[in-house]
Simulated assay, not measured.
Amino acid sequence: MIIDSHQHFWKYNPVKHSWINEQMSVIRRDFLPSDLKPVYVKNGVDGCVAVQADQTLAETDFLLEHAHNNAFVKGVVGWVDLRSADVDKDLEKYAKDKHLKGYRHIVQEEADHNFMLRPDFLRGISKLEQYGAVYDILIFPHQLGATLELVKKFPNQKFVIDHIAKPYIKDGFYDGWATMMKEVAKHENVFCKISGMITEADFKSWTPEQIHPYMLLALEAFGPERCMYGSDWPVCLVAGTYTQVMELTTNFISSLSTTEQAAIMGLNAVEFYGLE
C-alpha cells in the first residue's frame, strides 16, 4: 500500500496564496481531488493525507469536506489556533471527525525563532494528546533548536518533521542541519517526512545525487520505521513531475528490505496518523 503522507488542495487566491511567487507561477491555479486522483492512478498511490496550507478554520473545514467526499483522502492535518484560550472548543469539535488526524502551524513563517516555545503555544500543544491528535512541524533549519526543546517537553505527543526540515540544498548547506536533525531524531516520538526536497534544491537543475546525502541522513537518524514518503503535491510541480518525486524516494530506498520499503512508502503513515 502506498500512502502519500503530504499533499495540499486549494482554490487559488492571489492574496491568500501570496507565498506562491513568480518563480512558482505554474501552481497559481486551483488544485482539487479531481486533479490529484488521475495522478495517483498513474503512479499506483492508494491514498493520502491532506495538509493545511492556510491558517484558518475554514481551511480545516475545506480539507475535511474533500476527505468526506473522496475515499482516497484518508486523513487531514488541519489548523486551529493553538495559542487561543478557547483552543479546547475547536479541538473537541474536530475530534468528532474521524478524518481529522492532526494539526500544523506554518512556523517557518514566524519571525520569532522560539515561536514554538512561547507559553500560549506550548499550552495548545499540551492539549493534543488527549484528543488523539498528532502535530506536523513545519520549520526551517534555524528552528531545529526550538524543535528539539519542544519534542523533549512532550515525550508522549506524536510529532513529525515536514520536508526533512527544509535544508538549504540549493546552497549546499548541510552540517548544522545534520547535527540538529540527529539530536531531534533521538526522541522516538518524532517521525520524519521524506518530502519537499526538490523545491529546496535548484528548481531547474537539481539531481537525485545532490539530494541523496540529505535523504541518507534522515533515513539513518530516524530509521526506516520513522520515515514516511510524501510528495508535497502540487508544490512539487514547480521543480518536477509527481513521478520524478516518487521515484526520487523509491529509487533511493530500493536497497532496503521489502518490509522497510513498505513501511516508508505507506505503513508508517498509516500507523502515525491512524489511517483506516
Rank of each mutant, 00 (worst) to 15 (best):
I3C: 03
D4F: 02
S5A: 14
S5Q: 08
H6R: 15
Q7G: 00
H8I: 04
N13Q: 10
H17I: 01
S18L: 10
S18Y: 02
E22V: 00
Q23D: 03
R28P: 01
D30G: 05
D30I: 06
K42S: 13
K42D: 09
N43Y: 04
G44Y: 01
G47S: 06
A50S: 14
Q52T: 09
A53M: 12
Q55H: 03
Q55W: 06
L57P: 08
N70S: 15
N70W: 00
G78Q: 01
G78R: 01
W79G: 04
V80E: 13
L82Y: 08
S84R: 00
A85R: 06
V87E: 07
K89L: 14
L91Y: 03
A95F: 04
K96V: 15
V107G: 02
Q108M: 11
Q108I: 08
H113M: 08
F115H: 08
R118Y: 10
R118W: 03
F121M: 14
G124Y: 04
Y131D: 03
G132Q: 13
Y135K: 04
Y135D: 06
D136E: 13
I137S: 13
F140K: 11
T147Y: 07
E149M: 08
E149P: 10
L150W: 11
V160G: 04
V160M: 14
D162K: 05
H163V: 07
A165H: 09
Y168L: 14
K170L: 09
D171Y: 11
G172H: 07
G172K: 02
F173D: 12
D175S: 11
D175H: 12
W177M: 07
A178N: 07
A178L: 10
M181K: 05
A185T: 06
K186D: 03
H187D: 12
H187L: 14
H187I: 08
E188W: 06
F191T: 05
M197F: 01
T199H: 00
T199D: 00
E200A: 05
E200L: 00
F203S: 06
F203Y: 12
W206A: 04
T207G: 07
P208Q: 12
L219Y: 01
E220S: 05
R226T: 07
R226Q: 10
R226S: 07
D232M: 02
A239Y: 06
T243M: 02
V245Q: 09
V245N: 13
E247Q: 13
E247H: 15
T250I: 09
F252E: 04
I253F: 00
I253H: 06
I253S: 15
S254M: 08
S255L: 05
L256V: 05
L256T: 01
T259S: 13
A263G: 04
I264E: 12
I264R: 11
M265L: 15
M265C: 10
L267T: 15
E271V: 06
E271I: 04
F272E: 05
Y273G: 15
L275S: 02
